[in-house]
Nucleic acid binder design. Structure first.
Lengths: 119, 119
DNA sequence: TTTTGGTTATACCAAAAACGCATAACGGTA
DNA sequence: TACCGTTATGCGTTTTTGGTATAACCAAAA
């Protein structure tokens, strides 16, 4: 058996909830950023390595729980369709990014200080 | 529909992983503390409002992944049996508690500063 | 020696959630 | 009108989770 504590690592996460239901977190942030960048839910899903179905479900759930749209969707057209972020979504991304900044680093620093590896 | 941002709240958590598998977090910390206090996995489960089955599964998974025992278990005997924490478990609880201290408060402060309610 | 009682341990079935494939709807463009 | 790539969704399958029932265990009491 390996030495106690080896390979152990700390992880942390922040997310938003409404009525105890998760509404926004790191994974969904990345998804929205990729939609913003690519103009397509489909392309964003591929970039994340998840199915379109899953990406769509995430976005749909977010919007239903928040009560306002995050993505403007267009079906058909020249490119087959496209998706852009609403101003609400942009604001959300901006604030969440600030909220998250530095937290992981801080946690990791404390983790090392406490010497979890040498339990 | 309600005003945007109303009812929204921030949540955060820290946990330990080995090979990407969760090994220790807030729920499991509480479970171990209750085992410590009551001397029984069964009593701890009841106090947390979960089934013995679930509590046992948590502890078993933690031990398997960590590679060392957290709970000394005794079957049978006068009280039917009993469970106590190993020194490793005590150390783990202590360190994790420090790691977690202040984290939630800090997140909440930043959340208010950013005015998520008024998205 | 036998029974009792409360705990640990596990097998097994049910319910729920996640997953992903298949298919329809859509509308510029050629 | 046919085509193409995207959005949208139904539905069966797989995986995960959960809970109930049951066995194993052993000190002490009967």
């Amino acid at each position: 058996m390996s030495a106690p504590g080896s390979g152990i690592q700390v992880r942390s996460k922040i997310w938003l909830e409404i009525d105890g239901q998760p509404v926004f977190g790191q994974g969904r942030e990345e998804l929205l950023r990729l939609v913003q960048k690519s103009g397509s839910i489909n392309a964003a899903a591929k970039a994340m390595g998840i199915t379109y179905r899953k990406a769509w479900t995430y976005i749909d759930a977010m919007e239903k729980r928040l009560g306002f749209p995050l993505v403007n969707r267009l079906k058909g057209g020249s490119g087959g369709g496209e998706s852009t972020l609403t101003p609400h979504a942009e604001t959300l991304l901006e604030k969440f990014d600030i909220l998250q900044q530095g937290f992981n680093e801080m946690v990791n620093r404390k983790f090392v200080e406490l010497d979890f590896k040498g339990l």
